[in-house]
C-alpha cells in the first residue's frame, strides 16, 4: 500500500479526516510553513464555497403520496401519475420497479488514540467547565490584544479570564458548545515550537515564545479545527499579530464543527 500524497494528506486534514496523530503532524507543518498554510487556506475556502451549493435556489415541492394537490407534484410527476391511472398503481409500479438499494448499516469506525495523560491544564479546563459562567464578559487583557483577531476569525469568544500565580487562564466559547482554554505562564523557558497531542476526547497544544509558555486544551473538539486554531495562535504569538493575515484567513475559513461528530 502506497503512502498518500502530501496534497491528499492536506486535503484530508481540511476535511477533518486524518487520525489525530497525523492531523497533529500536518498542523505543525502548516504552523511552520506559510506556503503550506496558504494552500490549506485555499482548500478550506474552496470547501466552504461548495458547502452552500444550490442553497440559493428555491427548493422544489416535496411530492406527496397520496398527492394532496396538483401543486405538490411537478408537471412531469403529475403526467406520470395520470398515465398510470391511480396513485396506488404508481406505488405498485415503483415498488416493483425499485432498484435493489441495499441499506448501509455499518457506522464509520472512529480512530481512537490512547487517552491523553492527566494534565494540570486539563484539570483547570474541567474546573472552568464545571463552574457557573462569569456574569460579565471579560475584555481582552491588553497584553493579549494580538489574539483578538485570531479568536474572532475562529468563531471563539472570550468568556472567562483568571490570573493566578503568574498564570493567566483564558476561556473561550464558540458555536456548537465548543469550549477551549488557553493558559499563559511566564516560565522563562527556551523557545519551543508548536507541539500537539490529539485524541478524539482531549486535544492539547503547547509552545513557548520569549519566556512565555502557552498551553491550549479542549475536550471533544474536532481535531483539525483545534489544530488550526492552535497553529493560528502559535503564529500570532510569534509576531503578535503583526503579519498574521494569512493565518487569520486560514482560521476564518476553517469552519469545521467544534464538537466531534457535530
Amino acid at each position: 500500500m502506497t503512502a498518500p500524497a502530501p496534497e491528499a494528506l492536506l486535503s484530508a486534514f481540511v476535511d477533518g479526516e486524518l487520525p489525530p496523530h497525523e492531523a497533529a503532524r500536518v498542523a505543525e507543518a502548516i504552523a511552520a510553513s506559510p506556503a503550506l498554510a496558504q494552500r490549506a487556506a485555499r482548500l478550506h475556502q474552496m470547501k466552504a464555497a461548495l458547502a452552500g451549493y444550490g442553497a440559493d435556489l428555491p427548493l422544489p415541492d416535496m411530492p406527496h403520496l397520496p398527492p394532496r394537490s396538483g401543486r405538490a407534484i411537478s408537471a412531469l410527476r403529475l403526467g406520470k401519475l395520470v398515465a398510470l391511472g391511480s396513485v396506488a398503481a404508481l406505488c405498485a409500479v415503483l415498488i416493483l420497479g425499485v432498484m435493489p438499494v441495499s441499506a448501509p448499516v455499518s457506522a464509520p469506525v472512529a480512530v481512537l488514540e490512547p487517552a491523553a495523560p492527566a494534565l494540570p491544564a486539563l484539570a483547570l479546563h474541567d474546573d472552568w467547565l464545571a463552574a457557573p459562567p462569569q456574569a460579565v464578559t471579560p475584555d481582552f487583557p491588553a497584553e493579549f490584544g494580538w489574539m483578538q483577531a485570531a479568536a474572532r476569525a475562529s468563531g471563539l469568544q472570550l468568556v472567562h479570564q483568571r490570573a493566578d500565580l503568574g498564570q493567566t487562564h483564558l476561556g473561550f466559547k464558540g458555536p456548537n458548545a465548543c469550549r477551549l482554554s488557553l493558559l499563559v505562564s511566564d516560565t522563562g523557558g527556551r523557545e519551543q515550537p508548536l507541539r500537539l497531542t490529539l485524541s478524539d476526547s482531549v486535544q492539547y497544544a503547547t509552545w513557548q515564545r520569549q519566556g512565555v509558555t502557552f498551553e491550549m486544551v479542549a475536550r471533544d473538539m474536532a481535531t483539525a479545527r483545534f489544530a488550526t486554531v492552535a497553529a493560528g495562535l502559535y503564529q500570532g504569538s510569534k509576531d503578535h499579530g503583526a503579519d498574521g493575515a494569512l493565518h487569520i484567513a486560514l482560521l476564518q475559513s476553517a469552519r469545521l464543527p467544534c464538537r466531534v461528530g457535530a
Binding site: G52, G54, P60, M62, P63, S74, L76
Partner: peptide, 29 residues
C-alpha cells in the same frame, strides 16, 4: 437538492432528479 444541483447540468434536471429520488424513497419497501 444541493446534491441534485451538483450532479445535473440544469435546474429542471435537478428538480426532476430530486423529485424522482423522494418518490423512490417514499415508496421503498
Amino acid at each position: 437538492f444541493g446534491y441534485a444541483c451538483a450532479l445535473c447540468p440544469d435546474i429542471s434536471g435537478a428538480e426532476d432528479l430530486y423529485q424522482d429520488t423522494i418518490l423512490r424513497a417514499m415508496t421503498a419497501p
